[in-house]
């Protein structure tokens, strides 16, 4: 009997911790989403109002002057182009490193891993000077180049781990049937690693979509991305919480929804395939 009660108590404590952690995770996000639908007078109440008459005013304000729409478009362009480049170049590079049994392959992989040891600001300062000198400041070139360079090492690393899962017999069979090395890649290897590459693409998109430091200095009024735009909403003397929350909600929701679908790849992706999801 005594054992039973301790067991029930233990389950109770466990449940309590799990629920508390869920609340700790969800409440801050929920606060922003709720605030984005609040009228000005409902935002600054003590205690916080959990029930209120919703309004879309803040969303209208975020889109006014074409601000948010332009930021959204800039982010979409930068994220799409840099992710396509990272995944395209990264997949080819990974295949080149693994499929030909090159001696220096291990060394090159380590070279890519060094990307983790370079602070973004260390890269940004000289990159800013160089891009300014080239007259390309304020164009998409800066953020696209920076995001691609940051994503590439991790995509290559990830793609190598996917390639290791492709049975070598598949490729050998294709070559016996008269395929060249590249034909074997497109026809046989590619379809097998495509789901993995899709995940790599989404993770690259997510990085680029959320990235702040590079975009902060390499873009200008015409090319501000969403995080830069939001930092400008927030950075001003008095924060317009309603407008900022609406912009924040529209920025994070697409990524959170997509995140649910690529759950399985989150752990694997962020560690470059070193653990399986």
């Amino acid at each position: 009997m005594n054992r039973m009660t301790t067991k029930t108590a233990r389950t109770g404590v466990k449940g309590l911790i799990l629920v508390a952690f869920a609340l700790w995770t969800v409440i801050p996000i929920l606060m922003v989403v709720l605030t984005s639908f609040k009228k000005q007078k409902d935002i600054f109440t003590v205690p916080v109002k959990w029930l209120f008459v919703p309004t879309l005013d803040n969303y209208g304000k975020a889109f006014a002057n074409g601000d948010f729409g332009a930021y959204f478009l800039n982010s979409a362009v930068v994220a799409a182009v840099s992710s396509l480049l990272s995944v395209g170049l990264g997949a080819l590079c990974a295949y080149g490193l693994t499929a030909f049994g090159i001696r220096s392959a291990g060394l090159l992989t380590n070279f890519f891993m060094l990307g983790k040891l370079v602070p973004a600001v260390t890269m940004l300062l000289p990159l800013f000077v160089m891009i300014h000198a080239a007259g390309l400041l304020g164009t998409y070139v800066g953020p696209v180049l920076a995001h691609t360079a940051v994503n590439l090492p991790f995509v290559v690393w990830l793609a190598i781990s996917f390639l290791k899962d492709v049975p070598p017999e598949l490729e050998q069979a294709a070559q016996i049937d008269g395929c060249s090395k590249m034909q074997a890649f497109w026809r046989i290897v590619m379809p097998v690693i495509l789901p993995g590459l899709t995940a790599a693409f989404i993770l690259s998109m997510q990085y680029s979509w959320n990235e702040l430091v590079f975009s902060l200095q390499l873009t200008n009024m015409d090319t501000y991305t969403l995080p830069v735009g939001i930092s400008r909403f927030v950075g001003s003397v008095s924060v317009d919480w309603g407008k900022s929350s609406a912009a924040a909600t529209m920025t994070m929701m697409p990524i959170i929804v997509i995140g649910f679908f690529i759950q399985k790849y989150l752990a694997e992706g962020t560690t470059g395939g070193a653990v399986k999801g």
């Binding site: 952690f21 995770t25 997510q206 702040l212 969403l226 929350s245 924040a248 990524i255």
Partner: peptide, 15 residues
């Protein structure tokens, strides 16, 4: 639990 991981740090700051 993994939701915060996907939120841009600038929005985490706002929150």
């Amino acid at each position: 639990y993994s939701m915060p991981l996907l939120v841009s740090p600038i929005i985490v700051g706002l929150i």
